[in-house]
Computed example of a mutant assay.
Amino acid sequence: MNRAEKAALQLQAVAVLRMLKETRTYDELAELSGLPAGDLNRYVNGHVLPGVERAREVVDGVGRDALATELRARVEFDDEGYVDNSGIVFDQSFLDLVAPVAANALGFERPDVVLTAATDGITLGAAMAGYFDARVAYAKKSKETAVEDFIESRQRLASGIELTYYLPGRAISRGENVLIVDDLIRSGETQELLLDIAKQANADVTGVFALISVGDEGIDRARELTDAPVGALSTFDAE
């Protein structure tokens, strides 16, 4: 880890601690993190930065648990099992905190491109791309009017509906590393289509990540299709 990466990790830890401090006293934050209240005060107020190892503990441990808890508090399900995650996908500052936590917890290799599906995955894709200093690309269910060359992936769902995603051919180049992300994974059908797009582009998949997993079906399906790390920030029981 070079000096810039160390500094970035330390600042990410401070950002996580500041988010947690918004709803906690320093004593409560100390109990949660296992760090002295006095040290936390200095970190949160910007007087000093945590050491690299302590910063890693905050981001990988406390950060993931805290963000997962925050996510669960913001997500709502209706009577038919549909998910309202607008409180998450419209909060770019929250997603910017998720990016380093997910990257460190799941051990994703640095991608050249973060690939997602329009539209709810775009804000997470932007956050992950910003963290990795990568490009973001998103597949759509319709073709761009002025684009001639597309990668097309099509699948007939269990319901009988045919789902097709299109990505401009120049969005991903042969041999590039691609991280696939989306806001939600339930059946894994969208992830399968995105994995197929990456395969058609002759790209290497470095991981699959979702904010929310509803049940394990989608995660298991993605793991059958790639050897790269697959995971979600928080898992909800399937109804």
Rank of each mutant, 00 (worst) to 15 (best):
I151W: 05
K141S: 14
Q191E: 12
D84V: 00
E80C: 06
E148I: 01
D133R: 10
K143Q: 15
E192R: 13
A117H: 01
N177D: 13
S159P: 08
D65I: 10
Y165Q: 10
E152H: 05
Y131G: 01
G121R: 14
N202V: 06
Q200T: 09
V89H: 15
A171P: 05
S173P: 00
E152M: 04
V178H: 09
V75C: 08
R72Q: 13
R154P: 05
K140I: 02
V98N: 04
L124F: 12
V101Q: 05
A99E: 05
V113F: 09
D133A: 12
V136M: 15
L179A: 11
I151R: 07
D182V: 00
A66H: 14
L195A: 11
D96T: 03
I197F: 00
A134E: 03
L184G: 02
I197V: 13
E192V: 06
S142T: 15
S93L: 10
T69F: 13
V205I: 06
G160L: 04
D204H: 15
L115N: 03
L71R: 02
S142E: 15
A158Y: 08
V101N: 01
A129G: 11
G160Q: 12
I172P: 11
V113H: 08
G130E: 11
A102Y: 00
L184C: 13
A105W: 07
D149Y: 10
G175Y: 03
A137I: 00
R156Y: 06
P168R: 04
A129I: 02
L106F: 15
F94Q: 09
A127I: 00
R154N: 07
L193R: 09
I172R: 06
M128Q: 03
R135K: 09
L71M: 13
S173N: 12
P111A: 11
A73C: 05
I185W: 01
L97S: 01
L71K: 02
L184T: 12
R156M: 07
K140F: 02
A102F: 05
G121T: 08
K141E: 10
A99D: 05
Y166R: 09
S187Y: 00
V178R: 09
L106Y: 13
L157H: 12
V101F: 12
R64T: 07
R110I: 02
Q191K: 03
L106Q: 10
G175V: 02
I151L: 11
A129D: 06
D112V: 03
G63E: 14
